[in-house]
Design a protein around this nucleic acid. Structure first.
Lengths: 216, 216
DNA sequence: GGATAAAATGAAAAAATTTTTATTTTTTAT
DNA sequence: ATAAAAAATAAAAATTTTTTCATTTTATCC
């Protein structure tokens, strides 16, 4: 993960940088917001970590600038202010989160992780296949696989319960919305779906239902 | 907004309740998690506010129970613990946020607002119609309207640009993915879609394209 | 007001998806 | 090894969705 950190207190800045790098992140640290703005490609980052109270330019202004080039990068504001107005202002600006000094580095780490990984709801099925539970799309090596409506719902159910067997009845209930379909319809559906795949990750559990094995 | 608050310290609990009710929220406050579980319909709430450290049953366990009945309701854990393990545990459980005592009520209010309004991506089209941009579903008075794939994409585009005209070319490009379709196809599509609606919120802008008026 | 272009409409053809039926293969228990 | 049940497969029927074509209605410009 690539992180942009701007914090004028070099002692604090360096310790945050050091800590986050220990977690295998790539951290670009600037103690000057002006310099950061000059040197940086904002859309290369997964998250911004910005101090609010800085001499040359405050964190809000900095964020407004960065946002022009990187609309979807979440930001966490860091501040020593206890003043609540800052929280409000931060959220109005679209802050993803806000953390008050002093804080534990571990907490910062967790808040970062949560933001970056919450943003996507893609579940890895195999090395090459992933499924996006929000958009109900299947990807093979980042190429979308063209699925029909029923195939999407079918996969949604299996991926939501990844690692567990989903009973035929539940599938019927969910995918076909309780509609009275002949028992083989579901098998034909599976067949069609499998035909679209390079690897068959849909396992049948005889007499019960279907499942997808947990990856890794 | 309807809020479920469970906090064993009655002084804190009552002040939170009072404060949030001042902001026109409906707050159900319980000082006992057991009692809350017995009396409450979890899926009636927009958000849970749960203390972690409570005598009979801790906040995590309570949340696990509640989650069985209300999978998508976000939770903010409240705690006096400084222990960082609690933050980690909370986020693992799917906590939406976490707030440490003592906190300012205003900050809590802001964090709640941010969660509840960020969580949903439903755009109001008219009094009765709303469109969910995540799931691409249209609702009429909370009833889902059955749409075909193309109709969903068509509406997605219009809702994303609500208040602005979307040119025919752009619609063609997005909905039909650049495919070479006869110019009337899109009009027939609109016709079919309108047939499914009780009110026609799809406005044609002669010679340019279609739009949906901004609500309110 | 009439001419004209755009949009709406209705009906039907074409294409794609869903479902059933019939048959073959696989798995499991005996 | 064989029988029985379940699953996979193939082909065709049924249904739904998408697209085109022909016609009518509507809006706009002169």
């Amino acid at each position: 993960m690539r992180i942009l950190l701007v914090e004028d207190d070099e002692f604090i800045g360096e310790s945050i940088k050091e800590y986050l790098e220990m977690q295998d992140n790539r951290v670009d640290y600037y103690s000057s917001p002006i310099k950061a703005l000059e040197e940086v490609y904002p859309d290369h980052y997964d998250i911004f970590l910005l101090d609010i109270n800085m001499p040359e330019m405050n964190g809000y202004e900095l964020y407004k600038e960065l946002k022009n080039y990187a609309k979807d990068v979440p930001v966490i504001f860091i501040t020593a202010y206890s003043d609540i107005d800052h929280v409000e202002k931060a959220f109005d600006l679209g802050a993803a989160d806000y953390i008050k000094k002093p804080f534990e580095l571990k907490e910062l780490e967790l808040r970062i992780k949560r933001l970056v990984f919450k943003n996507t709801n893609e579940i890895k099925i195999t090395q090459n296949y992933k499924f996006d539970l929000d958009k109900l799309k299947l990807f093979y090596k980042d190429e979308e696989v063209d699925l029909t409506q029923n195939e999407k719902y079918f996969l949604e159910m299996l991926v939501k319960n990844i690692g567990q067997v989903v009973e035929l009845e539940r599938l019927k209930d969910y995918v076909w919305d309780g509609k009275d379909i002949c028992n083989n319809t579901i098998r034909t559906q599976v067949k069609k779906l499998r035909n679209k795949l390079h690897e068959n990750f849909i396992k049948n559990i005889r007499g019960i239902g279907y499942k997808i094995e947990k990856f890794k």
